[in-house]
């Protein structure tokens, strides 16, 4: 698609905004790097897909907690993705969900005990949220959407990417909350001694508020990106709606919209 041919058929995959990283990086589909970048950026479970809200709100009181929660989820996600992928041809279609639940719950139990044994302090502060990783929608979602349909290596990489994306998101949210709420970062004093911590940020309302702001910023970036796309859109202002989400765009190629736009402009004159 070039600006010189305004009536040309729009290939939806090639309509990239400046905000969209895939304009700059090209990775082979289902390769390890592609999966990792996809999990951290394009399909970031927290910021892009808005999944796994319970742990995101509950365990981001400090950066240390966020790292602990993020890495344990990553480990479970990788292992469950790997096993589900290996067993995908053996598990019968109707027994899919219960089998996935058992596989995920087993790894959660293992991580639960490892953490209790080696990181008792972390285990204490994360409490019930470690066993609750079982019902984290990200893990079940990846099993259903990816691991059940792809080979072991891409599935493992997908688990790693999604897990790291989740960890990064938790750390970012936790950093804001900890910095404002207790003036520290991962336990180290960062703010000057004169700083009075706004303790509501480490309490429950702060969690909702900080996450709301992050998602609002993401929305703003998406809207801005969409607007920039519209500026050089060959079809001009959308007449019959958004061509990207229109199922008939292949049929009309955006042309009727262009004609209609021209017509209305001439009519106005």
């Amino acid at each position: 698609m070039s600006r010189k041919n305004p009536g040309e058929l729009i290939d939806p995959d090639r309509r990239k905004s400046r905000f969209d990283l895939s304009r700059y990086i090209y990775l082979r589909k289902d390769s390890v790097q592609e999966r990792v970048v996809n999990g951290i950026y394009f399909e970031n479970p927290v910021f892009m897909l808005v999944l796994g809200m319970c742990p995101t709100l509950a365990t981001t009181t400090s950066v240390t907690n966020a790292i602990g929660m993020g890495l344990s989820t990553t480990a479970i996600l990788m292992m469950s993705n790997l096993f589900i992928s290996l067993l995908r041809k053996i598990i019968p279609e109707r027994m899919r969900m219960p089998s996935y639940i058992v596989i995920i719950a087993s790894f959660v139990t293992i991580v639960d005990f490892l953490m209790q044994g080696f990181l008792p302090q972390m285990y204490e502060s994360l409490g019930v949220y470690i066993p609750l990783i079982v019902v984290n929608c990200i893990i079940m979602g990846r099993a259903e959407a990816y691991a059940g349909k792809h080979g072991p290596l891409p599935s493992l990489a997908d688990g790693l990417g999604m897990g790291l994306g989740f960890t990064v998101a938790l750390i970012v949210v936790a950093a804001v909350r900890e910095l404002l709420g207790s003036g520290t970062l991962a336990g180290f004093q960062v703010m000057p001694a004169a700083y009075e911590p706004i303790s509501i940020f480490v309490l429950a309302p702060g969690a909702f508020l900080v996450l709301a702001m992050f998602v609002a910023v993401m929305n703003r970036l998406k809207i801005g990106a969409a607007r920039r796309e519209d500026e050089w859109d060959p079809t001009g202002k959308f007449v019959c709606g958004d061509c990207r989400s229109c199922p008939r765009v292949k049929g009309c190629g955006g042309k009727p919209a262009v004609e209609a736009a021209k017509g209305s402009q001439e009519g106005r004159r």
Binding site: V50, I200, A204, P205, G206, A207, F208, L209, L211, A212, M213, V215, A216, V217, N219, R220, I223
Partner: peptide
Amino acid sequence: PRPFRGFPIVMVTAALMSI
């Protein structure tokens, strides 16, 4: 405001309810 439509405004409401 447009960026706040949907999910973020619900979270802000939840924050106020939580307080």
